[in-house]
Amino acid sequence: MSNEKDCSMYTEHVESGKRKVTIQLKVNGHQVVRDIDPTMSLLHFLRDDQKLFGTKEACGEGECGACTVIMNGKAVTSCIVLAVEADGAEIKTVEGLAKNGKLSILQEEFIAEDALQCGFCTPGFLMSSRALLDHNPNPSDEEIIEVLSGNLCRCTGYIPILRAVKTAAERERKELGR
């Protein structure tokens, strides 16, 4: 996959008159090639096209973080990324966290610390946290708070989430040698 691919080639969609553009990307490790409407956001691509319903929309304007996914190693709010911008990208969503039927340490700690109540913001928090720990296995409280304050939660008061990320970082360092 390359960024150099000419994206200006469209096929006219006969019925709706909408233009389509082909994108090729990796979603949770799987190769995906799709023809999409260029107005589609990455969030809608993941949900409506890929049927990955774990990623949520709660504002649609990048303010709440519920739609956070990891794009090329960075946490982004997928509601304000065009799907076509993800051409050639590697995307990770909440569905990609658990491996071989086993929850990741981060997910386990979210459960153990009760870092969720209604659960709607949880995928976004998990992905922001995952991106943080991937870059910084030993973050300070301030670093965690800086990164996670782009995610809104109305249920928990955040303290359990902070605890979960700290204990997950500790366990990952110990158990995975990060």
Partner: peptide, 11 residues
């Protein structure tokens, strides 16, 4: 732990 936590952390 809350009963429905696993569904919520896996999407």
């Amino acid at each position: 732990n809350r009963k429905d936590a696993q569904e919520k952390v896996t999407g």
